Computed example of a mutant assay.
Amino acid sequence: MAEKLESIELALFERLIDVGKLLERRADRATREHTGIKYTQYEVLIRLRNAGGEIRMTELANKLVSTPSALTYQVSQLEKAALVERVVAPGDDRGVLARITPAGRQLLREVSQAQNDMIRDAAVAPLDREQVEAAYAALGALQRHLRGEETGGILPDQAPPEDTH
């Protein structure tokens, strides 16, 4: 039988869940205000940009911690807005890639400062530099444990070069 959680360990888990929900709610509100799309859709655009412009739908669903059907719906909405397109994977007629369009890249550039402001206000301003670095390291360790890799945190100027499809 596993050891009983210490009070602080249980409290940590509850805070992580609470903060995650609060951040997601704030991000969704800000994203809708500045783009007209949901944060979950904005996150698809970010992941596509970070992947160099395109990625297999199955891999994208995994990175977003989403079900394939939920991702298909979000990508369909982004296709209607001409921000994403789906294409057949080269050499694999059954594989499907999601690809960000020039309009999707433009949307990311246009809302970059508004998103930066929201992130600073919600997650950076209340902390000092040491706390930011400690939180980044601790959450990275949790990602590695739960996902097997660290994801996210790629700055726009560190993203892979644009694909010219």
Results as ranks from 00 to 15, higher is better:
Thr40Gln: 06
Leu108Gly: 02
Gly153Pro: 09
Ala61Met: 08
Arg147His: 09
Leu155Ile: 04
Arg109Ser: 14
Gln143Tyr: 00
Ala159Met: 05
Glu133Gly: 05
Asn62Leu: 11
Thr72Ala: 11
Ile154Glu: 07
Thr31His: 00
Glu85Lys: 07
Val84Phe: 04
His145Asn: 01
Arg105Ser: 04
Arg99His: 02
Gln106Cys: 03
Thr164Val: 14
Asp93Gln: 09
Ala51Asp: 11
Asp92His: 14
Asp93Arg: 14
Asn50Leu: 08
Pro161Phe: 09
Ile119Tyr: 06
Gly52Leu: 11
Thr67Ser: 14
Leu127Val: 14
Ala122Gly: 06
Ile100Val: 03
Val88Arg: 15
Ala30Thr: 09
Arg47His: 09
Leu107Gly: 08
Tyr42Lys: 00
Gly36Phe: 07
Leu155Thr: 08
Arg47Met: 13
Leu64Val: 12
Asn116Glu: 13
Val65Trp: 05
Arg99Met: 01
Tyr39Cys: 03
Asp163Val: 11
Val44Glu: 00
Pro90Arg: 07
Asp163Pro: 01
Lys80Phe: 04
Asp128Lys: 08
Gly153Lys: 05
Lys38Asn: 02
Met57Ile: 15
Arg109Asn: 10
Glu33Gln: 07
Asp92Arg: 15
Leu139Ala: 12
Val132Arg: 13
Val75Ala: 02
Arg147Asp: 08
Glu110Thr: 11
Ala141Lys: 12
Leu155Gln: 09
Thr72Arg: 15
Gln41Val: 05
Pro126Asp: 11
Thr101Gln: 01
Val124Tyr: 04
Glu79Asp: 01
Gly95Arg: 10
Ala159Asn: 03
Asp117Glu: 15
Ile55Pro: 00
Leu155His: 13
Val96Ala: 02
Leu45Trp: 06
Thr164Pro: 00
Ala137Gly: 05
Tyr39Met: 03
Thr72Asp: 12
Leu155Asp: 13
Gln41Trp: 01
Gln115Asp: 06
Met118Val: 13
Lys63Asp: 04
Ala89Thr: 15
Glu149Asn: 03
Gln113Trp: 10
